[in-house]
Design a protein around this nucleic acid. Structure first.
Lengths: 114, 114
DNA sequence: TAAGTATATAATAATATACTTATATGGAGA
DNA sequence: TCTCCATATAAGTATATTATTATATACTTA
């Protein structure tokens, strides 16, 4: 359990990032497991650049980290972030989004190793 | 303690409202006690209409409730809101802002009964 | 090396946000 | 009633946000 006090200024930054349906869902999915960009593109009804831009915002703020493996880029929650306890506390309250990921896996067609 | 699961869509709405320094601070102040508009105007470095507009957004979303008493309008957290548990969980993590209110009281000059 | 796939970036457009000043409304008291 | 004070609303402006399409980059494999 998170006992820390959140910096108010920092909280507004994090809230702004989470105040978007796509980004908030991405974060909850990443709480379930790390994830390749192509999987996220499949899940949402928006273009690939749009997903990339959302991921960049989350990464610029340090909320997620990227790791390139071969042709693919994987994103994961950044557990080293000072904001991680805040993020975790919030994500824990949200309904599971893992099923979205499973649906994409089921459907097949992606070549990433997830 | 809040055990409820937050609706994801609703969470983005609340985060958007709290993703502003002024509004987030107002909410934390109102957690301390209900408050007259004129007190809030004193606390922040923005114009009175700006405060009114922030309050309206919070009220339109049901996060706060207004009550007119005589010449003054008092705002308080709306504990009846479905979002109140979420709001409360968040506010509890933020640093106290009650001192801002006390500073205004000390300074005097306001005629409201707070 | 050519072609295909995965991802990022650039440019742009539509919309939303948050402030300002000016003005309206409505209660309180002389 | 006239005026003052508290608050809300309107209008305008600057900036931010989020999507799109077009294009660039980089790895992979034939």
């Amino acid at each position: 359990m998170d006992k820390s006090i959140w910096d108010l200024e920092r909280a507004t930054v994090v809230f702004k990032l989470l105040a978007d349906r796509t980004r908030l869902t991405i974060m909850k999915i990443l709480e379930y497991r790390e994830c390749c960009v192509c999987e996220l593109v499949e899940i949402f009804q928006v273009s690939q650049p749009s997903i990339s831009q959302h991921l960049r915002k989350l990464r610029d703020a340090g909320l997620v980290q990227e790791e390139k493996r071969g042709q693919w880029t994987y994103y994961a929650l950044n557990e080293e972030s000072n904001d991680f306890p805040m993020v975790q506390t919030i994500l824990q309250q949200l309904p599971d989004q893992g099923t979205k990921l499973k649906a994409v896996q089921q459907k097949g067609g992606l070549h990433c190793s997830s």
